[in-house]
Design a protein around this nucleic acid. Structure first.
Lengths: 245, 245
DNA sequence: CCCGCGATTGACCAATTGGTCAAATTTGTG
DNA sequence: CACAAATTTGACCAATTGGTCAATCGCGGG
């Protein structure tokens, strides 16, 4: 039943024509953004665009976190954002592009807390601050953490480059700071890069595997008190593990 | 060659009849399994069946780990197992059932290492042994860990019940042992349940987020030496964190 | 007041997906 | 050997999915 009467509709606009049409949209988006920052006041138009994009990204983050890239549907994201599906394509072109926009936003937040780790700081204070900030992120933005975790879990096909270009150099820099502290005898000798892996794991587990933790603890969700308790546990366990009393 | 003399077979078995037809298969499967254990020797048939199922589960584990439940396709699993797609349905009925079979297998391995944590044991030795076993699992069966992680990440829709019925009681029992050790002054005071969360996180991160770790370390994969180094790091950090020198 | 352009939308594909079926083929057994 | 049950397989289907498109809407500038 393969052959049908479809042999009539041939070349029309297919393939690369789409991409060509889509790029202009992206172009004008960038233009609009520039205009809103540079010119007198953000016009209603560009503001609406930025808002719309932010709303879509927020909705997409929730849906991707809940179902993974493969399990999420543009339909579901559109519904979560309260928009018809073609709007998503209007703003982001494709599912993958939208996904990357979500990941990009996450990366920035993910890297930020490491700022506290600098050679001039006091080791104990710097690490405690870093861990607390990571814990705070896990509790306040669990969806972002889950999208990130999901991507890594599946081999990070969309951001291998980013890991190499941004995460890796950052970690090496921060690990050097810790090595310096160790050399000065200010903390126990340990593998500084692995220390980061452990801190990430110990903190993000509260976002990524929240169900497991809540189930084991017998809570419905982690209230502020439970969050404080978890934070205190992670901080003291790791600080003691680092020989920082 | 497609349409043929099929117009003869009409209303026959359709709709709910399917499920009915599939159940018998499952029934006979169980029967066969019993026969193979109870009777003289495993017959060629039942062994073949068990082998086939094991092969399918192994293939499914890889594919689910790499793409999540939503991203994995029965086609891909069939290809990975070297079988035509209908065979998967013959053995497991549906994608979800196959997924649950994979999860079930994982759970058993997941729970096993905790056996070392008993009141009679020496805290330091028991915990070290537990952590090392968890690390070993991460390195030898990363796909299983990822399937499990993926499921938790997305809210564990398929195994909430299992978490409540099996994981939770187990953890409570083991946490009680640790609390006892703490009460006896044999290790630093800390929250025993959260200690488990941290150990799980710190160990499984090497399976779940392997890409991230390899990228940061600049390795292609973690060779035996790197594995030993990671294990040593986690063991000593956590033991020191527990006040076990 | 109207014009132009970006934003919105419903209707619509082609491709893929999970799942089915009936016809073969293999296997164990009386 | 013959028969029935178990297994394998290619062809097929309905539903869903990512993505498209032409028609429309609405607002700000002339």
């Amino acid at each position: 039943m393969a052959v049908r009467s479809k042999e009539i509709a041939p070349a029309r606009a297919t393939g690369r024509a789409r991409a060509a049409r889509k790029q202009p949209a992206a172009g004008s988006r960038r233009r609009a953004a520039l205009a809103s920052t540079g010119r007198k006041g953000r016009t209603r138009k560009s503001r609406s665009r930025a808002d719309q994009q932010a709303a879509i990204i927020a909705a997409a983050e929730r849906v991707f976190a809940g179902a993974g890239f493969g399990g999420a549907t543009m339909q579901a994201i559109a519904a979560a954002a309260g928009l018809p599906k073609p709007n998503l394509h209007y703003y982001f072109g494709s599912k993958k592009a939208l996904y990357q926009a979500v990941l990009e936003r996450t990366l920035r937040e993910w890297l930020a807390p490491a700022d506290t780790i600098v050679a001039e700081a006091e080791p104990r204070e710097a690490l405690e601050c870093y861990i607390r900030e990571k814990m705070r992120q896990s509790f306040t933005r669990p969806y972002a953490s889950r999208v990130w975790a999901n991507e890594l879990l599946h081999g990070a096909p969309e951001l291998r480059g980013t890991l190499v270009r941004q995460l890796r150099p950052l970690v090496r820099r921060k690990a050097a700071v810790i090595d310096q502290w160790i050399a000065q005898g200010r903390m126990a000798p340990l593998d500084s890069m692995h220390l980061f892996f452990t801190i990430w794991a110990a903190t993000q587990t509260y976002a990524d595997f929240e169900v497991q933790i809540c189930t084991v603890l017998g809570h419905d969700a982690l209230d502020l008190e439970a969050q404080a308790r978890a934070t205190q546990h992670v901080v003291s366990l790791i600080l003691r593990g680092c020989g920082l009393v």
